[in-house]
Structures are given as C-alpha cells and as structure tokens.
Design a protein around this nucleic acid. Structure first.
Lengths: 109, 109
DNA sequence: CACCATTAATTACAAAAAGTAACTATCTTC
DNA sequence: GAAGATAGTTACTTTTTGTAATTAATGGTG
C-alpha cells in the first residue's frame, strides 16, 4: 500500500489540468501575449483565460500590462514556473523516444 | 509564433489525462492489483478501469491474469511506461522545492 | 462627436467527461 | 445453492469543456 505524497499530488493536479502543459511549454519559449498563445495553441480564449488566471494565482505565471495603444498584456513564467522546464524537457524526451508515428493522430480514449 | 511538436502534444495529452500521473507513480512502485490501486489513489473504480484500459491500449501498462481463486489480475508498467520515470521524478522534485505548505489543500480553480 | 479597429477577455449555452453508488460476473468454498 | 472475494460495469448527477457571440477599454478617423 503506497502512500501518496501530498506535494506530488498537488503538482500532478496542476500539470494534469488540461492545456497547462502546452501553455507552460509555449511560455518557456519566452514572453507571450494572449492572442499569440491563442494562435500557438489549440485552445479557446475562454479556457486560455481561465488557465492563465489559475497559473497566475499559483505563482507560476506573471501578467504585465502595458498601457499602450492598443493595450498590450504580456504573460511570462515566474522562477517557480521556469523551474518546471526539466519536467517539460523530460516529457519532450519521452515523446521523442516513445511516441510512434501511428499514434500521433489518435486520441486517448 | 511557436509551432507545437505533435509528439509532445500527444505525450501531454496522455499525461494530462486526469489520474494518469498518479496511476503511473503508483505503478512505478511495483506491480499492483486493481483493488490495491483503488485504495492507494483517490479515484473510483469506474475511472481507474477506464484509465487502465487506455494506458494498456497505449502500450504503457501491462495486464496479467492469474486464474487462481479468487482471480488475480496484476497491472505493471511496460518498458515504455517505465521510461516515464524521469518525468515523474522531475515532477516530484519540483513539488518538493516549489509546492508550499499552504498550497497543499487548495484546488486549482 | 459618432463610429470603427484592436486586444483581451467574458457570457451563454450545448456537449463531453468525471464523480458516486449500486449492481453484475465469475469462481470457490461451505 | 447461498455466501464471499475480486474485478469490474451501469445508471445517474454534477462539473468541466468547447464554441460562438458579446463586452470593455482605448484610441484613431471622418
């Protein structure tokens, strides 16, 4: 009978929230604006907005407003967010070695 | 404009499926039976059954039947599944360093 | 000043997935 | 053939997602 580490459980809860991994991966590529992320990722504005708000609350994403015309709002990773880079890298590494060509277009059902 | 790696997207789709991370982490601790996993993890039989079936289809989990009384069915990780250990380890590492005490009982909203 | 453009969201509503608890199937011993 | 054990499945409710239309803030144009 394994006991579940509460910190691990919390971290998994975060990372297994739909789209969070892709958002982190996008932001590891540098600061992004809302509309950039919307076109980079297959996610709608409604969920992107929710996820960014959640990640900001968790201290992983930072939001900066520039009062130009038109208003510019930039999203970037905090130190806590950038610390997730090894996780994303290991996922990429596993993907490169173990995701086969045929699997690419199959959903997980 | 970042382009999304399809392999990464597929891997993230898998890992961000609710409960998959916890199931992998449990199975990294060794072979498990259905009822063991059910009591290790905060997941119901319905979803545990779904996720194990999905992970088996993805070639990550192996299912072995022993026709004893009562029937014994064991779940374990394939090589492809065990290759995810570094991912799980990096998540654990991030959790240890960045998940604070106060955060432990908050959900991601 | 009325009106359009731009960015960053939010709202409303239908569809899909998750949570919960009760039920089924199979085999075995009594 | 009734009861107990393991491994699921079913039926039903609640929550989360997906999609598209709408709003808010700001500034420029005619």
């Amino acid at each position: 009978m394994e006991k579940l580490c509460p910190r691990f459980e919390k971290a998994m809860g975060l990372l297994s929230t739909r789209w969070v991994g892709l958002i982190l991966s996008d932001l590891l590529g540098g600061t992004k604006r809302f509309s950039e992320m919307e076109s980079d990722l297959p996610i709608s504005g409604r969920l992107l907005s929710d996820r960014l708000k959640m990640l900001e609350k968790e201290g992983i994403v930072e939001r900066n407003i520039y009062s130009e015309f038109p208003v510019r709002i930039e999203y970037s990773l905090s130190d806590k967010g950038r610390a997730l880079e090894p996780v994303i890298q290991e996922i990429q590494c596993w993907a490169d070695n173990h995701v086969t060509e045929e699997e690419l277009n199959t959903e997980c059902e």
